[in-house]
Amino acid sequence: MLKKFDREMNEIIKLALKEDIGPGDITTDVLIPQSAETKAVFVAKDHGIICGLPVAKRVFQVLDKNIKVTYKKKDGTWVKPGEILATVKGRARALLSGERLALNIMQRLSGIATYTNKYVEIAKPYGVKILDTRKTTPLMRLLEKYAVKTGGGVNHRMGLYDAVLIKNNHLKQIDIEKAYVDMRRWIPKDMKVEVEVETIEMLEKVIKLQPDIIMLDNMNVEMLHRAIPMVRKSGIPSKIEVSGGINMSNIRDVVKTRPDFVSIGSITHSPPSMDISLRMIS
């Protein structure tokens, strides 16, 4: 996934380095000789799934193309405190100036991967897939969705351009039957159309349209036990997504209703970060 978006990843890193370093790392530039070289190791301080090693490597190599990074673990690997994740060798200035950004990204992405995986493992016995949302950090969506995939989740649409999602705020402005027909005329034939539904009454209308995906939004478990059988018994091929207010306290009850997907905003907007350090060893 990262290779596919190589240019975008470089742009993200350059913007982040500009934010942090600005016109120069004044402390490092004054104290550290330009020719000084060093070695450092990334070390896990938490249990979790590591994610973001290739991005951290790119951070250092944007600063100095001669930096050498050797992976000791691969993205997607479960690690425990004290395990070495990678070694970094090269100019000390590049390591010191890039340290914070590399760690920020790895800690954030590893946190997302680990948190996503907790939901994935709960949903797996029921054949339910965990989806992410657009609730991502501005300019970090590409990387955060990569972390979701690393944790075993599935990416929903990347943005407003690659799939249609007719939400309740749209439906307050339009007639759903007419809007759906118009939409199908305008979009590519292979583009998926999803419709968000909050009530049983609206669900009855949407079932007749047979969209690719029906999103049951903000329905409690009791309503899901009514809504999901309605869709299944109708015989339409639409997939069912459940969304809204899903957390660790209710995920088990939700997946037991056996939708196809459960989308969870918190896996990208508020996961706990994983603690990782970069230790200079010479």
Rank of each mutant, 00 (worst) to 15 (best):
D46G: 04
L95E: 12
I26E: 11
V254K: 00
K233T: 06
T137H: 04
V254S: 01
S110A: 04
Q34V: 14
K205C: 06
R258W: 04
L109C: 05
W186P: 05
S277Y: 11
D260G: 00
K118H: 07
G22N: 14
S243R: 02
P259V: 05
M248S: 08
V206K: 09
I228R: 05
I105H: 03
L15S: 13
E194A: 07
L31N: 03
L15E: 14
I166W: 05
H156T: 02
N66I: 05
I84Y: 10
E194Q: 07
M9H: 06
S234M: 08
A123G: 08
Y119K: 02
T70S: 14
M215D: 02
D182R: 15
N10C: 04
V120S: 08
I240E: 02
T27N: 12
V197Q: 00
K14A: 14
A44F: 08
A94F: 12
I214V: 09
K65N: 13
V59P: 11
E8L: 08
V55M: 01
V164G: 13
E198C: 02
G22A: 12
L96N: 06
V206F: 09
E144H: 06
K239V: 06
K145W: 08
P229D: 10
F5I: 09
M274E: 04
K73D: 04
